[in-house]
């Protein structure tokens, strides 16, 4: 009962205080808001990049070219040998014959179409292939090499340079976002601590009297920490709305993908709600931490 009474009094007082010190509250709130907007952007960016990386990894294929003098039986033998490799499972290997490939190439480009139409299917330079997906992307180089050694395979390709570059760019972006995020959160916490310090300075006497009449340190701290909590919650409203509405707009605008169909954006639901929760959490923690730091100064002798 007693704890409840103190608690409800604290909530009431910290609510009042947010409005009593309105201009200072506005300063803290905008501070939180701006940070959280940037935080939201970097979370959305880094999670999407994460998603890109995954979808690219899922689409990376080793193409093994088969010597055109091999008959059906020989091809089947080669397939079994590839399946025997550690990094390959049966469901991830697919045979694509030269006719099919020629058609795809003709569809892709007018120039190739012109060239190919003059060449008969018998004399085509296009080879039969196996399209192989690996279980572990890191070992793709080794697997490709092993496939290349199999008798009847003339050549192996897996677009190593493009893939490696893309993945490394994405990794850099992701790292950058995370560092930015951490730095921002820390900077805001201290900014808020300073803003709230000014608020609290004007209430120094109140704190002194509370101490004098025997309020415990916790007792004094709680209303201020609550106040920080309120500021954090209020400050996260705008970033959350921006996230929920803005991201859905962007997603619709790009039809859920970037540049090519296999770089997919994370679909908005429930993604935006998770991000919102994270924003709310950061806002609350940063607000409370700021207040706590600010009031701590006045509780020492």
């Amino acid at each position: 009962m007693k704890a409840l009474r103190i608690f409800s009094r604290n909530i009431r007082d910290s609510f009042k205080s947010v409005f009593r010190n309105f201009s200072l509250s506005i300063a803290s709130i905008s501070c939180i808001t701006i940070t959280l907007v940037v935080v939201a952007l970097s979370i959305i960016l880094s999670l999407n990049v994460n998603n890109f990386t995954k979808s690219i990894e899922g689409n990376v294929t080793i193409v093994a070219f088969i010597n055109n003098d091999k008959d059906e039986k020989a091809i089947e033998n080669i397939k079994q040998e590839i399946i025997k490799l550690d990094n390959v499972s049966e469901k991830n290997i697919e045979f694509k014959d030269k006719v099919e490939i020629s058609k795809e190439m003709i569809n892709d480009s007018e120039i190739i179409k012109g060239v190919m139409e003059d060449i008969s299917t018998e004399n085509t330079p296009v080879q039969n292939t196996f399209q192989v997906k690996v279980d572990k992307i890191v070992d793709i180089g080794k697997t490709a090499k092993a496939i290349g050694k199999i008798d009847g395979i003339t050549n192996v390709k897996y677009g190593e340079e493009m893939i490696d570059q893309l993945v490394s760019v994405f990794t850099t972006v992701r790292k950058f976002c995370i560092y930015l995020l951490i730095a921002l959160v820390i900077v805001t916490a201290f900014l808020i601590a300073n803003t709230i310090k000014i608020t609290i300075f004007s209430r120094k006497r109140e704190i002194e009297i509370m101490r004098l009449v025997g309020a415990s340190n916790t007792n004094i701290k709680i209303p201020f920490i609550m106040e920080g909590l309120f500021l954090g919650i209020i400050g996260s409203i705008l970033p959350i709305l921006l996230t929920i509405i803005g991201y859905q707009k962007i997603y619709q605008h790009f039809h859920g993908k970037m540049f090519t169909s296999f770089i997919k954006l994370v679909s908005p639901v429930p993604f935006v709600y998770y991000v919102s929760l994270v924003l709310l959490g950061i806002g609350m923690i940063v607000g409370m931490f700021g207040s706590w730091r600010a009031v701590k100064k006045y509780l020492k002798i």
């Binding site: 007693k2 103190i6 309020a215």
Partner: peptide, 10 residues
């Protein structure tokens, strides 16, 4: 009353 409120008296 302030001096008593901080203790949470009814």
């Amino acid at each position: 009353a302030f001096a008593l409120e901080v203790f949470g008296l009814p």
